[in-house]
């Protein structure tokens, strides 16, 4: 698989392009601008870059004030801090009044592998997903990231996006058009539907090769919008195969797997979740070492697919 730019880099570049055209776009950062890539805004438009330093709570509520005065603030920190440390500010000052603030969670999941559990977000999707008014995005590659950033600038209302720190495989191309809430089939199949998000989509594609060898044909669906979710589309996709697997670089409690399970509550289709099994992260020498250790692998997804297919048979047996 070909690797593309890290989502955080694509985010920073796209934000700069948008800022060139829209003077209302401003960026606030919590002393991480060289990681979150808002340094690009600071270099080109220093008057529209606000260093808010290591005070995330203040930063988020300040962005709310800017939105109240008609700006389109993109607020940046690591995913774990912007959703956790500033949760109350996101809830009270952004989501509840429905303000046009874009919450950008960089170095999401395990992507800041070296820094360990304190800097790795296993719960950001869960936290943002339970807030009324909040849109929650999780791009799978460079192209989807760019499209989502364009969507965020155009959309009026609070949005959370999680952004991988590292280069991830490119699945889509420049012609990809992001549509809010729409799951996208990236590989057709007939035996089991894999709902995946973020770079787990590419790992699911690797799992497909393993499964085909066993005569199992998985369908792979990219779920870039965690919320709002087109539940009808999720149900239809799951019904086509009758078995579902979810794959996310996030706690299996509260993220994509939970969202898909909620969508499928009314139709009895077995769902086997792949994700972080309710554990915190830890440091590692590289990203793949952590993904391996926490079972975020093609092998795990393949095993989950076999299990889901077996459950389908039992249910119908």
């Amino acid at each position: 698989m070909k690797f593309g730019k890290a989502p955080r880099i694509a985010y920073g570049e796209e934000l700069l392009e948008l800022a060139k055209k829209n003077r209302d776009i401003v960026a606030l950062d919590g002393d991480l601008s060289k990681s979150t890539m808002t340094c690009l805004i600071e270099e080109s438009y220093p008057e529209r870059y606000f260093e808010m330093s290591i005070a995330e709570a203040n930063m988020v509520a300040t962005a709310a004030g800017m939105a109240l005065k008609g700006k389109i603030p993109f607020v940046n920190s690591f995913a774990v801090f912007i959703t956790g440390r500033a949760f109350d500010q996101v809830r009270q000052s952004v989501a509840y009044p429905g303000l046009n603030v874009k919450i950008c969670g960089s170095s999401s999941g395990f992507s800041d592998f070296g820094d360990g559990a304190t800097h790795q977000s296993v719960e950001d999707l869960a936290l943002m997903r339970c807030l009324p008014n909040m849109t929650v995005l999780s791009p799978m590659d460079e192209h989807e990231t760019r499209e989502m950033v364009r969507f965020m600038a155009a959309h009026k209302g609070p949005v959370y996006i999680r952004l991988d720190r590292n280069e991830v495989p490119v699945i889509l191309n420049e012609n990809y058009k992001f549509k809010l809430g729409e799951p996208v089939v990236v590989r057709s199949g007939k035996d089991v539907t894999i709902f995946a998000t973020g770079q787990m989509v590419s790992i699911a594609l690797s799992a497909a090769a393993l499964l085909e060898a066993d005569g199992i044909s998985p369908e792979i669906v990219n779920v870039g919008t965690i919320k709002p979710m087109n539940e009808k589309a999720i149900i239809e996709l799951a019904r086509t195969t009758g078995a579902a697997v979810t794959a996310e670089e996030h706690n299996v409690r509260g993220g994509l797997g939970s969202a898909v399970a909620e969508a499928l509550m009314k139709c009895p289709i077995p769902i086997v979740p792949v994700g972080i099994e309710d554990r915190f992260g830890q440091s590692a020498a590289d990203y793949s070492e952590l993904l391996q250790a926490y079972g975020l692998t093609a092998e795990s997804i393949a095993a989950a697919c076999r299990e889901a297919k077996g459950l389908k048979k039992e249910n119908h047996g």
């Binding site: 401003v26 606000f50 203040n58 988020v60 509520a61 300040t62 709310a64 939105a67 005065k69 009270q92």
Partner: peptide, 25 residues
């Protein structure tokens, strides 16, 4: 009513944001 307040401690931050945005404009 300019801002939804009540979760204490947030009003001055919101005020700063408005003032910064006003200055930009």
């Amino acid at each position: 009513i300019e801002a939804n307040t009540g979760s204490l401690g947030q009003g001055l931050s919101v005020a700063n944001g408005m003032a910064l945005a006003g200055r930009l404009d």
